[in-house]
Amino acid sequence: MNRIAWFVNEAWRGLWFHRSTTWTALLSVFGSFLVLGVFLLFTANVQHALNSLGDRREVVVYLRDSATPDDREALIAALDSLYGVATYVSRERAWEEFAKELGGTELLEAVGQNPLPASIRLKLRPEFLNFKAMEKLSDTLAAQPSVEEVRFGGEWVQRLDSFIATLRFVDLAIGIVVALSVIFVVANTIRLAFIARRETMRIMALVGASNGFIFAPLVLEGVIAGLIAAALAIGVIHGAAAYLDGRPVDILPLPLSWNVLFVAGAMLLGLLGAVVALVPLTRKH
C-alpha cells in the first residue's frame, strides 16, 4: 500500500472506528449544509425571478411617419448589433395588438383612421438592463431623425433596479451570516471529533510520527465528512424541492453548476475546518 492509499485508509479507519463521533459530526455538519443549501435554493429561485422581471424591461422606439423603410432597416440593424434584439412593429400590427388588448374593435372604429405609430421594440442585452444604460440609450435614439419618441418606463425600471439591489444586498448579508455560521459549526464539530482522538494522536507522536503524518489522515477525514454531508444535504434539498414544486409556488432545482460548487465548497470547508481544529493541537506534538 503506498503512502497516499494508506492515508486515505487511515482516514476511513478513523471515521469507521469512531462511528458514534462520526455520526454526530456528520449530522451536525449535514444540518449546517442543509441550511446553506436551502439558502442557495432560495437565492437561485430569487435570481431566476429577478431575471424574469428584468427580461420584461424593453425600449420602445416610435418612428416618425416620415421614416423610410431604409431608415427603419438601418436603425434595426444598428440596434440589433449594438444593444439586443430589435423587432419592428408596423402601424397595422400595433393597431391589431391594441384592438386585441381592448377586446374588440368597436371603440377603435369610432376613432376612424389608425392613430398608432410604427415602432421598434428592443429587448436589451443583460448589460443594458439598468436605468442608467437605458436612459443613455433612450437619449441617443431620441436624437435620431427617424425617431419620434423613445419610451422605456423609466420610473418603473428605476424602482425595479432599486428593488433588485436591495434584494441582492439582503441575500448577500444573509449568505454571509449563514456561511460564517456553517464555518463555525464545521470547525467546532471537527474539533470535537479530533479531541476524541487525542490518545491516538499522542501515541502516534510517541512512536515518532511527524505532525504531517499524524494530521494528514485527519484533514482527509474533514474532507470526506464534508463530501458526505454535502451530498446528503444536496439529496434532501433536491427531494424536498421536487416534492414542494408547485405547492403552491414553482420551485426551480439548484442548477448543476451550483451543486458541483456546493459539494466542492463543502469539501474545502471540511479541509479548512480540520486545519483550524488541528492548529492548536500542533503545538502539543
Binding site: A205, L206, V207, G208, A209, S210, N211, H285
Partner: peptide
C-alpha cells in the same frame, strides 16, 4: 520526532 524514531518505548 526524529529522536523518537530512534528510540523504543
Amino acid at each position: 520526532a526524529q529522536l523518537r524514531r530512534t528510540l523504543g518505548v
